[in-house]
Design a protein around this nucleic acid. Structure first.
Length: 739
DNA sequence: ATAGGGTTAG
């Protein structure tokens, strides 16, 4: 081991000698050692070497030999900035006066270390005024964004509870984390994707200024990153300008620009650039193809797709899963689900994304069963479902009303911890709402932390679907279920406050609102005064209202218009016929039905589904095919007897000479929903909620009957019909008899 | 440095 004497024995002030002294300093643990070393320094003639003295001072402070250190400082003839910094760092009470001395009595210029140490002292001394002043000095000197200074500043502001300022400083620093002016082009390029992701346009522009100042503008990586950033912020012109500045763009910058054009709706430019790239004989990669995708949506360039497809085959990049996945997506967006499936089947390596593209292709095209069966296939494969997969499957469940599968998927989500994913939880809420579980939907909604517009929409429409307009309005101040005043106000404010010209659907909404509230005359007046062409939607809304409020005269006016506007639609005939039946005017009802027959309008047969456990049971009107048919009919007969006792009247009660009508009336008692409910009563425990699904709009008689059944059997009954949900409880329905 | 599969409503 080296000793001091070993060094002094050969006197020669060289660099290496100095190095040994410093090493000794570093190793010294008590004050006596550095004092000895100090003596050696003087002996060796290093007392005027400021760098050595600074290190010694630092060491002395470390060893708490404060006064010794200060003496050393004072005895140094020309202290430099480093030495000053060390002193400022360690002498809290005197730091500020040292700083002042530095500024006023020397030619030295404070640097980022000076500010950092001085501001830290201001924190220790709890001197708010001085701290702010020092911060200002730092900013003026251009050290405001330095990482060292910034950290001290954040600390300082936090001590005075100025969280807002601290936060701002912190964010600013975060952007330039790698140390302000010491940034290099690699660092800048690395910051860009994050900024692009956050669409931080302003910060992006600041970065560009910085880049120009630092002379990085010739770096291809930085320029490419900026192109992408501007594109993502919708500033396609700025991106174009930068792209033009590149002399010879490489594949990556081409890709950035192509995808930039694509995502900004300039598909023609995008395709043009793509062709140009091909013309240069440049090898295209998967990013190029992927970046082109939204070009096909929603315009549907099938020709271009097949061209690109064959190009990918020829060049061999079709074997890359990202490429074939991209093409699968394109094909399913173009409704070419078979082409999509072919690609999927032929792809050698199936990634989770490949499966997801195919499954979501099916759900988005309404092919829910195909989606579910592919999902089951996926589970046998070695690829396991991810959040994207379950999101698509939940959407399929929602479309199908498949509650049991939906619940199973919910279990899967829990076990895989996908619950925090916003897509997943939104799809879950939607699934429950659409499958009749409005309570479960609300529970999930309430617990959810980061909701977005889609989440809210799913919940709003869920409420609307369940006839709970009040709840929807309370939560979201939206137009719903018969809340005329709010509806009118919103409508007026849309026109006058927002200068938005109402579209036909808005007029239809207003007609619906007025109609639901029974203000039929007002609705008609509204229709007549509308400045837009009257469509089937408006008249349909009015007719619906007429049926509920039993206004025959207005119904005739509305239906005549509807028969003209939409002659193929049988729904309006059914509505009118229902209205006549409800008024016991069987002659008119029959004539409407005959009219339907004469015109050969197709009627969709009604059917109702009920799930017991996981088994679905489907009933049609008068259906006797069910194994338990006799029991079902017995229960139904008994029910109707009890219902009559408490005042239920079917249309069969009224004598009628119309034979056809008699047949019809007999049929009413065996409508598919009644059969399904009767079966539900047999197949489930007393008190259990019964949930059924009807493919058409529920008829008046069944609606009334279900109200009675809910009361007599003390069961909650949920009916999902073609339009909405009906919650029957205790003899009442959530729709308020309006549907 | 560039890129892909997902939720609502209409």
């Amino acid at each position: 081991m080296l000793t001091t004497s070993a060094i002094t024995s050969t006197y020669s002030p060289t660099r290496s000698r100095n190095f040994f002294l410093l090493l000794l300093l570093k190793k010294s643990t008590t004050v006596s050692h550095p004092t000895q070393t100090h003596a050696q320094i003087i002996l060796n003639g290093f007392q005027n070497d400021v760098s050595t003295v600074t290190k010694l001072t630092h060491r002395l402070f470390d060893l708490k030999a404060t006064s010794y250190a200060r003496q050393l400082f004072l005895s140094t003839p020309n202290p430099d900035l480093f030495l000053f910094n060390v002193l400022i760092k360690f002498s809290n009470a005197h730091s500020i006066s040292l700083y002042t001395h530095l500024r006023k009595c020397t030619l030295l210029k404070p640097d980022n270390f000076t500010y950092a140490f001085a501001i830290a002292s201001a924190s220790t001394l709890s001197d708010e005024k001085v701290g702010i002043l020092l911060h200002e000095h730092a900013v003026v000197d251009g050290d405001g964004l330095d990482l060292f200074v910034g950290t001290a500043v954040v600390d300082f502001y936090l001590q005075f509870w100025r969280v807002d300022i601290a936060r701002k400083m912190f964010d600013k620093m975060g952007m330039l984390k790698d140390g302000g002016i010491r940034l290099d082009s690699t660092t800048v390029a690395a910051v860009l994707p994050a900024l692009a992701e956050l669409q931080e346009l302003i910060l992006g522009m600041e970065v560009q200024c910085l880049v120009l100042k630092l002379g990085f503008h010739s770096y291809l990586h930085v320029l490419t990153g900026l192109i992408s950033l501007y594109s993502k912020c919708g500033e396609i012109e700025a991106a174009k300008l930068l792209f033009g500045e590149i002399g010879r763009p490489d594949l990556v910058s081409y890709n950035a620009m192509i995808s930039g054009y694509t995502s900004n709706g300039e598909s023609e430019c995008s395709v043009k650039l793509f062709r140009q790239l091909l013309g240069y004989g440049e090898r295209v990669n998967s990013s190029t193809i992927v970046g082109l995708i939204p070009v096909f949506h929603p315009f549907g360039y099938l020709n271009l797709t097949t061209c690109i497809h064959s190009f990918c085959m020829k060049s061999g990049i079709i074997s890359q899963s990202s490429v074939s996945t991209a093409l699968t997506t394109v094909y399913s967006r173009l409704n070419k689900i078979n082409s999509a499936r072919l690609l999927f089947d032929e792809s050698s390596e199936k990634t989770p994304a490949s499966w997801n593209a195919m499954i979501s292709g099916y759900t988005q095209n309404g092919l829910t069963e195909a989606a579910i069966s592919l999902f089951q296939e996926m589970q046998i494969s070695e690829v396991s479902p991810n959040p994207v997969t379950v999101t698509s499957i939940l959407s399929a469940c929602a479309q199908l009303g498949a509650l049991s599968l939906g619940k199973w998927v919910h279990g899967l989500i829990r076990s895989k911890n996908f619950e925090s994913n916003i897509y997943v939880s939104t799809a879950l809420i939607d699934m429950y709402a659409k499958c009749g579980g409005i309570r479960e939907a609300l529970e999930l909604f309430d617990l959810m932390v980061g909701k977005n517009v889609v989440t809210w929409n799913a919940m709003i429409s869920g409420y609307g679907l369940h006839g709970q307009g009040q709840d929807a309005l309370r939560l979201f101040s939206e137009i719903h279920a018969g809340l005329v005043k709010e509806g009118e106000e919103t409508f007026q404010s849309m026109i006058h406050d927002y200068h938005f010209e109402p579209l036909p659907e808005h007029y239809a909404c207003m007609v619906d609102i007025l109609g639901r509230a029974g203000q039929l005359e007002k609705a008609l007046k509204f229709i007549k005064e509308m400045p837009v062409e009257l469509g089937a939607a408006e008249w349909g809304a009015l007719l619906g209202a007429c049926v509920i409020h039993k206004d025959k005269k207005l119904a005739q006016v509305a239906s005549e218009r509807l028969f003209e506007l939409d002659p193929e639609n049988v729904e309006y005939h059914v509505l009118l016929s229902n209205l006549y039946s409800a008024e016991r005017n069987y002659r008119l009802a029959a004539s409407v039905r005959q009219d339907v027959k004469r015109r050969n309008l197709a009627k969709i047969p009604g059917c109702t589904l009920i799930e017991i456990g996981e088994t679905p049971h489907v009933f049609t009107s008068g259906d006797r095919s069910h194994p338990q048919a006799s029991a079902i009919y017995a229960v139904l007969e008994e029910l109707i007897r009890k219902m009559k006792e408490v005042g239920f009247q079917t249309e069969t009660d009224t004598a009628s000479h119309d034979v056809e009508e008699e047949e019809k009336e007999l049929m009413i008692n065996v409508h598919s929903e009644k059969l399904a409910i009767a079966f539900g009563l047999i197949a489930t425990e007393p008190g259990t909620e019964i949930r059924i699904f009807k493919n058409l709009r529920v008829c008046v008689d069944c609606h009334t009957a279900t109200k009675f059944i809910s009361k007599i059997t003390e069961r909650d009954i949920v009916v999902r019909d073609a339009n909405q949900f009906h919650h029957f409880k205790d003899g009442l329905c959530s729709c308020g008899d309006y549907w």
